[in-house]
Design a protein around this nucleic acid. Structure first.
Length: 263
DNA sequence: CTTTAAACCTGCTGGC
DNA sequence: TGCCAGCAGGTTTAAA
């Protein structure tokens, strides 16, 4: 159940485990990927990168594996030869001499080439990645105000990967709380101060989550350093004003906020 | 054009 | 204990 920071964390851990080592075993569950098992064996994983919530695994023969965890995908790292017991369905296994990386449950897995990345239906459509250090608050501000997005309510806008890639449902709630904004705003109803705060927090909060290890640790257990202020805290007191956090549905997703101090 | 709803996908939780 | 409905931190598509 990952958003941008959790996917990037997973990518970091996977890279540390297998990048640069020759692949001694390659296994795919999906029939359309099985033809690649032979050609990838002996190759190396050169790097793993994230684009929003998508993860790209680059192989030394020029292939690129696109994976998206959606709600339920799970990457794991194990010692070579180990097959952990789980009820989940294994989809990808990439093994080196010492370590193997396993992808469970994900249903959105495609083999591409670097040239094909630009035309992938998801990658071609997503906006700037909030974890891309080249993206600045000024750029975000301009994007919020652009003709394309300025009429969208923040409740839906922040979930739209075409606006900014990597945000998800917990970040939506946490960002709007941090900016003290109602989800009903559009860019056109924000004053200068609100606009500046929002543009800043849209980047700083995902980056904080990433740098504080996200909401789950590298073994996908809860208890990491990033603490929710509103998400999943219905009824608990708002840390800013003491009034109870409210749960509602927005854009067909659970939304948590403090109606008393988010305006 | 924007927003909402439903579908798809898979795993987990809770109620009966 | 077993089964099923409903839900989830996602995305796409259709409908309103």
């Amino acid at each position: 159940m990952p958003e941008g920071p959790e996917i990037r964390r997973a990518a970091d851990a996977l890279a540390a485990a297998v990048v640069g080592e020759p692949l001694t075993g390659v296994w795919f569950a999906f029939p359309e990927l099985q033809p690649y098992e032979t050609e990838l064996t002996g190759q190396r994983i050169e790097k793993l990168e994230t684009r929003g919530k998508a993860l790209l695994t680059y192989f030394s023969n020029g292939r690129v594996l696109y994976t998206h965890n959606q709600l339920y995908g799970l990457w794991r790292i194990v010692d070579a030869g180990v097959m952990p017991d789980t009820k989940r369905d294994l989809r990808v296994r990439l093994e080196t001499q010492h370590r193997a990386i396993l992808l469970y449950s994900a249903s959105d897995i495609v083999m591409l080439t670097p040239d094909a990345l630009a035309t992938h239906p998801f990658l071609q459509r997503i906006g700037p990645d909030v974890l891309d250090s080249a993206v600045t608050p000024e750029q975000v501000r301009a994007r919020v105000l652009s003709q394309r997005f300025c009429r969208r309510r923040l409740s839906g806008l922040l979930l739209d990967q075409a606006f900014l890639a990597g945000l998800g449902n917990y970040l939506r709630a946490e960002i709007l709380w941090q900016a003290a904004l109602s989800p009903q705003h559009t860019a056109m109803t924000l004053d200068e101060g609100q606009l500046t705060a929002l543009s800043d927090i849209l980047l700083s909060l995902p980056r904080l989550s990433y740098h504080t290890r996200g909401t789950v640790d590298d073994n996908h257990h809860h208890g990491a350093l990033f603490r929710f202020k509103v998400f999943d805290r219905e009824g608990k007191p708002c840390e800013r004003c003491g009034h109870p956090i409210v749960r509602t549905m927005l854009s067909s997703r659970p939304f948590f906020w403090c109606p008393h101090c988010q305006h």
